[in-house]
Amino acid sequence: MLYRITVRNADGEKLEIVVEMSEDEVRALAEELRKAGYEVRVEPIPEGEEP
Rank of each mutant, 00 (worst) to 15 (best):
A30K: 04
L29Y: 15
E39H: 15
L29I: 06
V19N: 01
M21Y: 03
E50V: 09
R41V: 04
V40P: 02
V18S: 04
I17S: 05
A30C: 04
A30F: 05
P44I: 14
E23Y: 11
E16M: 12
L2W: 14
E49H: 11
E50S: 11
A36Q: 10
E23G: 07
V7E: 00
A10T: 08
E39D: 10
I45V: 10
E47I: 12
E13H: 14
E50D: 11
V42Y: 11
A30Y: 05
V18T: 06
V19Y: 03
N9V: 07
L29V: 07
G12I: 04
V42D: 00
A28S: 10
K35Y: 06
L29K: 05
V19P: 00
P46Q: 12
R8S: 07
E47G: 13
D11P: 03
M1Q: 06
G12A: 03
K14V: 10
K14N: 06
V26N: 00
P44Q: 11
E31P: 00
D11K: 14
R4W: 06
Y3H: 03
E39F: 14
E50N: 13
I5P: 00
E20R: 05
E43M: 08
E32H: 13
L15C: 07
T6W: 15
A10S: 07
V18G: 01
K14L: 13
Y3C: 01
V19D: 01
V26R: 01
G12P: 01
L29W: 10
D11V: 12
E43G: 03
R34E: 05
R8P: 01
L29F: 15
A36I: 06
E16V: 06
Y38I: 02
L15I: 08
E20D: 06
L15W: 08
E50M: 11
K35M: 08
E31G: 10
G37C: 03
R27D: 05
R8M: 15
I45E: 06
K35V: 04
N9I: 09
E47V: 14
V19L: 06
M1W: 14
E49W: 09
L33H: 02
V18C: 04
A10H: 13
R4K: 04
D11G: 12
E20Q: 14
A36V: 10
R4V: 03
R34A: 05
R34P: 00
E13M: 14
V26L: 04
Y38Q: 02
E20H: 10
Y38P: 00
L29D: 00
R8D: 03
G48D: 07
E20Y: 15
E16P: 03
A36P: 04
P46G: 14
R41T: 08
E31R: 12
Y38T: 01
E16Y: 14
E39T: 15
